[in-house]
């Protein structure tokens, strides 16, 4: 564990708490893409098939939290606050993402086993899981401030993982190409968002696309 990775994981936790806070406080999931949340649930379930493999208490607790919270968010969006979800705003075709990621995972993986291919699939899928949310944002052209804090925390988590990998490469000679390439793409997807968040939200303005 290093500073970057711990901070990244804490940002990831924070992002989920901010999302839960947004839904509970406003009693609405408007502005949140169900499709992105669905993809995250798929990501966590397919990645943590090794849940019973012991690495550390930290590792196990975090995995349980990510699986449980992602499914809980689906429950909130699909059942508890269903009336506040507007599917007509959430029109990104995730079938293509799922298909492309599965295909890539079948071709580019470390070992061709069931568990390993699904792990690789989850890495690729996480990289693009935010696209339905960003697409929704670009369609509506604006977002509630708390929703932008959620997205910022989520993007910061990915950015910090890049620093963690650089750190681990030099201190441990840790190499993981699949995770690096996917992580770099994932972080790059946030660059436009980061720019507007910095220009607008951090200066006290409403998040609006130019």
């Amino acid at each position: 564990m290093n500073f970057f990775r711990l901070t990244a994981d804490l940002m990831h936790l924070l992002s989920i708490f901010v999302l839960l806070l947004k839904i509970q406080k406003t009693r609405s999931c408007s502005g949140i893409s169900f499709k992105t949340q669905l993809l995250y649930a798929v990501v966590f379930v397919t990645r943590y098939l090794d849940l019973l493999k012991w690495i550390s208490l930290y590792n196990t607790l975090m995995k349980i939290f990510f699986i449980a919270s992602s499914i809980y968010i689906l429950y909130l969006m699909k059942i508890k606050f269903r009336a506040t979800y507007d599917p007509s705003q959430d029109t990104f075709r995730i079938e293509f993402l799922l298909g492309a990621c599965l295909l890539l995972a079948l071709v580019f993986n470390y070992t061709f086993t069931f568990i390993e291919v699904l792990w690789t699939f989850s890495i690729y899928l996480e990289a693009v899981a935010i696209l339905p949310q960003l697409f929704m944002l670009s369609r509506t052209g604006e977002a509630e401030t708390i929703t932008t804090h959620y997205l910022f925390a989520l993007g910061a988590y990915r950015g910090l993982y890049l620093l963690n990998w650089i750190w681990r490469f030099y201190t441990e000679h840790h190499i993981d190409w699949i995770v690096w390439v996917a992580g770099a793409i994932q972080t790059a997807l946030y660059s436009d968002f980061f720019y507007i968040y910095y220009k607008k939200v951090l200066h006290g303005q409403k998040f609006e696309l130019p």
Binding site: D9, I55, M62, F66, N164, I175, D176, W177
Partner: peptide
């Protein structure tokens, strides 16, 4: 060896 990558990250 890629198989030796320890999946300790989340």
């Amino acid at each position: 060896n890629a198989n030796k990558i320890i999946k300790d990250e989340l």
